[in-house]
Design a protein around this nucleic acid. Structure first.
Lengths: 229, 229
DNA sequence: CCAAAAGTGTTAAAACTACACCCATGA
DNA sequence: TCATGGGTGTAGTTTTAACACTTTTGG
């Protein structure tokens, strides 16, 4: 035990709530724990923060190591500090909120260390630690934030149809939106731009593909305009 | 050094950004540091988290110990984890965001340990550590959140006039609001209720005093309505 | 009676909501 | 030629924004 301090210290971990979207709906990425405590339970990907890495770096590292997914959006969610949230000892967990797009959707194949899988948001298994609580905070953040920040694009490929964008919002918000009103509003902002490419190989009229222009959004938002779905 | 661990651990601190309002405008509560590092500099009230207290408890304890103020609103802000934010060693800081109302405005008199004082938000002295950055995150949160959550009341006494409430919003948002529109909107929500008491000893027509009914707000908000100034 | 802030309605513009049909494509 | 989703406009309603005068009170 070579690392000694004058006062006892909590351990610091990061845990990541990773959202993805597939034809079935909104999904969460979970890891099956290979070690105690909660061995065999499903849990959020995460682990202890190294003393020489930032919190963001720790979150990214754990996502790569444990889940093998790459992330299109990452933000800090909340820091959970209840005394008994880990049965071993005091662990403070900085939770992150992440979105992956379909191209990065496939988690790394099972390894000795961990098994990763996607679960429907409405059909989660029992979770280790206080992770069910962390997930509920993340879902609330997703549903709140998606309405006034353009993060929905993080769940889509680089180019997408307006209908697929609308579906993102419908799955997250849990209600139907009006197609004409949705398109009018999104296009009125000016940062969702048509490419001149259309869908391929669809059994119906091929839709225009669009792209989210982040620079255009930043400029527009910095003038004090508000995005709202 | 009796507390030893297998791997090195960061220290964990809390720091509190405390907002108050007086006739001069929006103020922040700062502490003059009595010890190194940054001895003599102004800093946010805060300190290390004890291993047997939650993060919220640590924030409240530090506010009482260091500043002697009592708080009307407290929420976690963000966790700062840059590697060099403390020159001594790796310290992760969980920042809190707090509001005090005028009755709790007077910080404890100077002590050997610390000196507390209010500073205008626009005229802050140089701050220790990364506290200037923490303050800027807190100000952004205040300005964003005040528009869609009824936290402005945390800066007022239990009963207040509508004009003083409007002033809260004007000071925070930095722009004038229309008196008639403001009053119509606030009263339409139904959770800002008239008391049957009026101001006393004012050199003009005495205004009706109102009260924020938290239960009424909760019920209303749980039906999916949105507060917005 | 003066100064100072309280209190109160209307109108025009903008934003939002609801709603239905024709079009292009591949099977 | 059929099934499937793509794409488009308008009208009624609601919400917001702009705006000025009378009232009450204490000094």
């Amino acid at each position: 035990m070579p690392f000694a301090y004058e006062f006892p210290r909590p351990a610091v971990a990061v845990d990541c709530v990773v959202f993805g979207l597939d034809p079935e709906g909104l999904k969460l990425l979970l890891i099956e724990r290979a070690v105690e405590p909660f061995k065999g339970s499903w849990a959020l990907p995460g682990g202890f923060v190294h003393v020489d890495e930032t919190l963001d770096q720790a979150a990214e590292r754990e996502l790569i190591e444990e889940a093998g997914v790459s992330i299109s959006y990452l933000e800090q969610l909340y820091t959970f500090g209840a005394l008994q949230r880990d049965p071993r000892e005091r662990v403070i967990s900085v939770a992150y909120f992440a979105l992956v797009n379909p191209a990065s959707y496939t988690p790394r194949a099972d390894t000795d260390a961990s098994r990763a899988a996607w679960f429907k948001e409405s059909e989660l298994p029992p979770l280790a630690f206080d992770h069910a609580h962390v997930v509920s905070v993340a879902l609330e953040r997703l549903r709140t934030k998606v309405r006034y920040r353009p993060i929905g694009f993080g769940l889509l490929p680089d180019t997408f149809t307006l209908t697929s964008l609308q579906t993102v919002y419908e799955k997250i918000l849990g209600r139907k939106l009006d197609k004409r009103n949705f398109r009018k509003k999104i296009l009125s902002y000016g940062f969702v731009e048509p490419t001149n490419v259309r869908e391929q190989n669809v059994a119906h009229r091929a839709a225009q593909l669009f792209r989210f222009n982040r620079d255009a959004y930043e400029g527009w938002a910095s003038k004090g305009f508000d995005f709202e779905v």
